[in-house]
Structure formats: structure tokens, C-alpha cells
Design a binder for these strands. Sequence first.
DNA 1: GCTACAATTGGGACCGGTTCCACGAGAGGG
DNA 2: CCCTCTCGTGGAACCGGTCCCAATTGTAGC
Lengths: 335, 335
Amino acid sequence: MGVTITDVARVAGVGRGTVSRVLNERANVDPRTRARVLEAIATLDFVPSPTARRLSLRRTQTIAVILPFLTRPSAVERLRGVEAALVRGGYDMIVFNVETVERREAIFRDLPRRERVDGLIIVSFSPHQLEFERIGRIGLPVVLIDAHHRALPRVVADDVLGGRLASRHLLALGHRRIGFIGDIPRIPLAFTSSRLRLTGVRREITAAGLTLPTSLVAIGDHSPRRSTVLATRMLTQRLPPTAIVCASDTQAAGALEAAAALGMNVPGDLSVTGYDDIELADHLGLTTVRQPLFDSGVRAVERLLGLIDGNLPGPLREVQPISLVVRRSTAPRSV
Amino acid sequence: MGVTITDVARVAGVGRGTVSRVLNERANVDPRTRARVLEAIATLDFVPSPTARRLSLRRTQTIAVILPFLTRPSAVERLRGVEAALVRGGYDMIVFNVETVERREAIFRDLPRRERVDGLIIVSFSPHQLEFERIGRIGLPVVLIDAHHRALPRVVADDVLGGRLASRHLLALGHRRIGFIGDIPRIPLAFTSSRLRLTGVRREITAAGLTLPTSLVAIGDHSPRRSTVLATRMLTQRLPPTAIVCASDTQAAGALEAAAALGMNVPGDLSVTGYDDIELADHLGLTTVRQPLFDSGVRAVERLLGLIDGNLPGPLREVQPISLVVRRSTAPRSV
DNA sequence: GCTACAATTGGGACCGGTTCCACGAGAGGG
DNA sequence: CCCTCTCGTGGAACCGGTCCCAATTGTAGC
């Protein structure tokens, strides 16, 4: 333990600089010298200290991921993608889970000032002006996933389109009263995707010459439990919907639960769509809008590493493809 | 950017050592000197470089978490606990997600590039002898969660007891043919909890003077999808069970799905229990064995930080309490 | 055989902290 | 009044790498 580059240099009978050159695979090293150095490294079982390397290079080989609600399967799936891509790139990942406003503020207060990460990935919430400036001031490369900011590179899907796809499908099946259940954009953690999906639904319904009354729009938090409550309320009102578009698979699961508890048959009496296409959707046979979650993490990392290496950012907004996956939770409106 | 301790020293008109003493709140600093230094720090907006600090102190203020299958809700919940506790302790967390044997090997191979973490938390799989030796050789403090090793500190729950609790409950409800669905301990990633739960079930059933025939034990991977297949097979055989104990809530969800597809009523025709008490269990109304997932992460961190600070490890094996949560997926056997 | 130039190489300076040692000043005791 | 002893302090050495410059060696050209 504690074998340093100096030890290697001594054993190999060369200077420290030469060992460093061998380690970093620089040119201009005599093959025989290189061989001796490599042998010494092997003999001593030498591993370079990343910390010393960092100090010297002023690079940490680490990136930070900030994401809200590690509990959400969709967030976790994105994290998996980030992790997998970072491993390939030789970077470490440190994770910050944000569940409160205080924590969010604390992270942004501390993180940027320290040169402890080379880059930042923010998942599913949009930095506000202050945070943006703070990041900009220290010149920390950032990529957003599933979040928006005019001036920052980001990997997103077209949530408005997603809302349209889901409702178009239901309209095509003959549904005329379509409800929507989404999660509230808690102001301080402003998520936007749910709101955008609602916009898509509304546009599509309007385009079909119909309307989306407020009685058919319910907003709560992300939990299936809350969604069950909202769906139950919506389904027991005077003019209930024959189909419900949900802003996530998790919430769709809650809606299915509500329908079952009310003795309604899905898709006979009620059609339900989700969003994300997480494993649960497959399991529940949920018709849903698929977006590439894992891949969004991979792409974000690729772009971030590019930025770190000083490549041109390219188009700031990278839009990932989405598609409708039809399963057995939707059917033509029963007459 | 780039304000160093030397700048602070210059502005305050003191030596670098003195600044360091102020930063680390050492005694033996004249109050007036301290005030001047603090003022200089504020003026310059100085933040010490963690990297330099690490190199000097030979401490990284970072711990690594290795866990398999970030997709599993129970693993994620544990991770949340770890993250929350580390934040409180002022440590960073780097995450390694293991989904293949190659990755597992790679992680343990690279680990000796030590100095990059001060400690290690391994979740849900037990290090084999080679890994144990490797960790020991570099003197890296380790705590296991939901995993076993004679010589390593660990935070576990009594899985055998958990299996007993679930089956005892079902036996008390009059069930006599009880099945079990668990996930296979894939040899290279040997998870043990599922196997131990099966042991508990078997013991309890045996203690009741009954037997657990092999036709009522099904082992697959962790996915609900696979579990649905297994449950369907089990339920359509000649002598089907009237109750099924599952090794996780996820698998229980799969079993419920199978029952629904077969037109069976839960809990009328079939009782089902899960394990973990994740959010899904609440949502599905699943009777399950609750174990403190979040808290297991918190406790592991507390113990690990203690080890890092050189405290005595105390009893190696810390057992967390578990309890049966009865919901609506279990009922007395219908006659 | 001598010069010019390229290829290698050694080692000092540096990254930004912490620690330890030695030194000076002020206080207390004889 | 002088001698200790303590307290506060400056600064060198160190942590373990990288980088750059200068020196040395080797080689080709004339």
C-alpha cells in the first residue's frame, strides 16, 4: 500500500516524468524503457492515485447527477442509463436526490463552488434563473434531461406530442369524454412534463372539435394512491369519462385500481393510458406512450462528456423519439 | 475561481498554516487573527479545494455503494436511505450498479484504486472469498446490507423469520396448500434472501405438520412478468395452492396478475403475500412482510462512518425488525 | 569527422491543501 | 531582572501526480 510513482521510477531506474509518460501512453518513450517501467509497475502492483491526478490535472473524472424523487421508476431508469454510459467513459457518478426545496437549494449552493465535479446532469426539473447563473459563473458543463432551459443543452422528448398520441388513440377508438390525471408541478420543483402532456391532450381534443372540461382534469402528486383517489372522484361524478389519459404509468396504475374498486371493467367500461412504458406498464398490460428513458441518460452523458472535452454543443435541444404502445387497457368505446 | 489558501493568507497578512488552522477550527489562534482571516475568506469568497484536501489528508470524503439491479424498488429505497444519511454526514456517494458478472468483477478489480473512497457499502449480495480478501488487503471499511459474510459488519433482517411470519399468517387463516414463488439465486450474484425466506416458509409449514411439495415451489428471476408465468403454471396444476407466499412484492404483483387472468378472485379463491412493503404493496392492497428498507441504508451508513472514524465495530450482525402488514390480499381459506 | 537536429529523458516547479517544527513575544516565578 | 514556559505564528516539507524545460544521447547529412 502506498506505492507511488517515485517508487516505480526508482525500481525502473528512470525519472518520474518518464513513468508518467508511460502511464499516459505518450509518444516519445523508448520501447525498452517503456518495458522496464511496465515491469516495475507490475512488480510493485502500482496503481496511480486518482486524487493526486485530480489535483494536478484539475479534473475530477466525476460528474454529479441531480434528480428528484429517486423513488420514481422513470427517474431510476434514466439514472441507470447515466450510470452505464459513465462507466464506459471512465467517470464516476455522484448522486444527489432532491426531495425538498431546502435540499435543492443546498445542493446548488454548495456544489458549483467546489471544483469537485467536471460536469452536471439535471434530471426532470428546470434550473431557475439563479441556479442557471450560478452554474454559468463557474463554467460548469451541464446537460438537462426531461427539463427545459432556453440556454442549456438538453435531452427531451416531445411531451405535447405524447399527450396528443395518447388522446388521438382514444379518439380513434370512439371515445368522446376523455379525462386527464397528472401530477402537480410543485412550484419550487417545477416539473413541466405533466403540464405539457396535458397541453397535448387538450390540443388534440380541441382539434377533434370536442372540449376538455375542468371536471375531467385532475392534478395530484405522483403517487398511485393519490391517483386512485382522483380517479375515483372523476369516475363517480355525474358525467364520467369513458377514457383517462394519465401523465405516468404509476398514476395509470392508480386509475386502474380505482376502476377495479368501482367494479368497472378495463377496457370494457373504461380505457386508460399511461406514460413512460416502465416495467409496470408491461405487467399491467397498459397502453402507454413509450419514451427512451435509459437512452436519455446515455445520450445526456455522451453530450456532457463532449462538452467537457470542449466539443461544440451542437443543437441545444435534442428530441428523442416517442411512440404509442398499445396493450389491453384501451378498447373501442362500448356503446 | 481559483482563490487559494495562499491568497487568503496574503490578504489577511498571515501564514498559510494559520489560515488552515482557522479553517479547521483549531485552538491556539488569537481571536483577532482569526477575525482577520475570516474576513479575508469572506472578501475573497474562498472555498477550500476538496481535492487538495483529500490528497493531503488521504481521505476522500466519499463512499461507494455497490448494488445489483437498480431497477428493483427495494434496492432503490435502500439507496435513498444511504444517500440521505451520507448527506448528513458530509460525504459524497458514488454508485455502482451491478447487473452482470463482468461488471461485478470489474468493480472489485478496480477497487484497489483505493484512496478514491473511504468506505464501501454492498447491498444485497454477499462478497465471495476472493472479494473479501481483496477488500481486506486494502483495509477498506465495509458494511453489508441484506447480505451475509461471517467476518463483515452487516445490517440484515431475519429472512427466515419473514418467511415464517407470512406462512404462519396463512396457516392461521386455514390454508393448507401453500405455494412459494421466489427469485433464483443466480449463482454469480448469489442473493440469499429469497432462499432464506423459502427456508422460513418450509420450517413453519413443517412445524404445522404439513409439507411443502416441490410442485408448490417456483423459482424464476425477479420480474413480475416471469412471476406471472410461474404463478399461472402453479395455479393450473392438478392440486393448486390456496395461498402463495412470494419473496418480493414485485413477484406478488405478478402472482396477482396471474390470478386475475385466470379469473380467480383474490383473496376469495387465492391468498397472496409479498415481501418488502414497497409503495406498490400498499397500492395493491398486498399483505406483506415489512422490512425497514430506507432505514437499513441509514444504519449501514452510521456504522460505516463509525468504522472510518476508527470506532469499534460492535456486534457484526445488526438485525432489523420486520413485521407482517395485513391488507386485503389474504383471507381465510374458502371452504 | 563534425554539425544540426530529433528523440529521449531527468527533474524542478506546481496543483492546494495539512502538519510539524522552530522561533519570537509575553507572562509568571524566583 | 533574568530565566523558563506557554502561546501564537510563519513557513518548509509533504501528499502523489503532471508538465515543461533543459540536458543528453543518437542519427543523419555533408
